[in-house]
Design a protein around this nucleic acid. Structure first.
Length: 420
RNA sequence: GGAGGGUUCGCAUAGUGGUCUAGUGCGCUCGCUUGGAAAGCGAGUAUGCCCAAAAGGCAUCGAGGGUUCGAAUCCCUCACUCUCCGCCA
């Protein structure tokens, strides 16, 4: 959420931000509603002040006739007050409806564009492997090595269902163990964060109301999170933090659930796009400074690049175009791992910063040196997400005989150097 | 699942319809005092919003609704929490 004062003072900037993000929002209407809201607050509070004043006076009156007279007068005021209150409520409702839909301002450096096709490549790392044979897909490789069962997966879980087996399970646990160990040294606090959560953290992080179609909802009015970011950011909801504790760095493990409502025809085969997966997510809360956000954004992106490098997966980093940004994101980098069978880079990590967009909604503040409270800044990036990472990992490390070389850094966790 | 308690200013507690402008203790800040400190004494000690600002006002006693001229206080719903019972791992 943006500050309404900021929106009023920077109307054109907010409008162009919405345009750049390809988001429909009527800012002029919002300002109209805000004018109404302010007027109604003023009227309501004035009447309320009168009521408070006279009520105090009534308590002092000893003459019963005079008392009755004042009370009957106050009954009239009370009725009028109820009307003002109802009107204010209506205006507030529309005001809030609009406010939660106003997008954050994307950074100047975010390229124009409508979709991910307009993302701009920033850098690449690693040499794409040159195979002396036709490289197989992860589905074929894993199927042959009895690492996955899609048929029975769909039998029990439906579309996009899968069952990881044997060495795929070991590989997944090895990855989580390895990545967790990497982050311990960087001052991150590891958590296992719930995915089954109340509405508030979803609204706070910007997933509601926008992405309601992508969320699974329960009969208890809770939702399943598609990322650990939701619970991890909710962790400090309605709290005032100490500036000296910033930045706070979390490495949050969680199962992730996504309906993929908007991508029905996409990636229907294999492990690319599944409804249920696991992820270690970097979540950062830092002081309210653009420079600090930018610095940490680069840092958490580099953290994940180091993981890709250690896993020997060729990748590129792209900066996402305006249309590919979420409501609250100021700027986003995707890391995309090379997938030999598709001869394409595919997203494995997503790194973004939000300024105070999320913390304002979540009411996460800290006190600065002067004792003034400020909304903190927030950022997040994938550390590792499986099973998707297995695609690039397995395909890039395949041999002609269908065996898979295990990257050196994972060997101690796997207890072997090759899956055969 | 059943029964019964609880949720008040950073912490602990008081408050059962209007002198609550939420008292008291502890903690914290500042001052007086002191060679210095402690004790003592005195003052202060939330957040958000409206208003260009100041002055002022409004809201907040777990959340939301209701009764009333007036609610921390009465009523309803909900959340969380504690104790006991039951069930289960």
């Amino acid at each position: 959420m943006l500050d309404i004062k900021f929106i009023r003072e920077n109307k054109d900037l907010v409008k162009s931000a919405a345009k750049k993000k390809h988001i429909e929002i009527d800012i002029d209407r919002l300002i109209e509603v805000d004018d109404e809201r302010r007027k109604k607050i003023a009227v309501y509070e004035e009447k309320k002040a009168e009521q408070n004043k006279v009520s105090d006076e009534i308590a002092q009156i000893t003459d019963s006739k005079e008392r009755e007279h004042q009370i009957s007068k106050m009954k009239m005021l009370k009725e009028a007050l109820a009307t003002y209150e109802a009107e204010l409520k209506d205006t507030m409702k529309e005001w809030q409806h609009l406010m939660v839909r106003v997008p954050n301002i994307p950074d100047m450096s975010v390229p124009e564009g409508e979709t991910e096709a307009d993302n701009k490549e920033l850098r690449t790392w690693g040499d794409k492997p040159e195979f002396s044979f036709e490289p197989k897909s992860h589905m074929k490789l894993m199927g042959n090595l009895n690492m996955v069962d899609f048929e029975r997966g769909t039998k029990i879980a439906g579309f996009r269902g899968h069952v990881l087996k044997g060495d795929a399970v070991s590989l997944q646990f090895a990855l989580f163990q390895f990545v967790q160990d990497q982050f311990k040294e960087k001052g991150f606090t590891s958590t296992i964060i719930p995915s089954l959560l109340n509405k508030e953290p979803f609204i706070g992080t910007g997933f509601l109301p926008q992405s309601v179609e992508d969320l699974y909802k329960t009969q208890d009015d809770t939702y399943l999170a598609g990322t650990g970011e939701v619970g991890m950011m909710g962790y400090y909801m309605d709290e005032v933090l100490d500036k000296k504790d910033l930045p706070i760095k979390f490495l949050a493990f969680s199962p992730c659930f996504r309906r993929e409502a908007g991508s029905h025809g996409k990636d229907t085969k294999g492990l690319m796009r599944v409804h249920e997966f696991y992820k270690l997510e970097q979540v950062i809360i830092c002081e309210a400074s653009h420079e600090e956000s930018v610095k940490i954004h680069e840092e958490i992106t580099e953290n994940s690049e180091k993981i890709m490098q250690a896993l020997k997966i060729p990748y590129r980093v792209v900066v996402n175009s305006g249309g590919d940004l979420g409501l609250g994101q100021v700027k986003k980098y995707d890391i995309e791992g090379w997938v030999p069978s598709e001869k394409k880079y595919r997203e494995t990590h997503s790194s973004s910063y939000f300024h105070d967009f999320q913390t304002r909604r979540l009411n996460i503040k800290y006190k600065d040196e002067e004792g003034k409270s400020k909304f903190a800044h927030s950022l997040n990036n994938t550390a590792i997400a499986t099973p998707r990472i297995l695609i690039a990992l397995i395909e890039n490390n395949q041999n002609e005989d269908g065996s898979i070389n295990i990257p050196e850094v994972l060997q101690k966790y796997m207890g072997k150097d090759k899956i055969v």
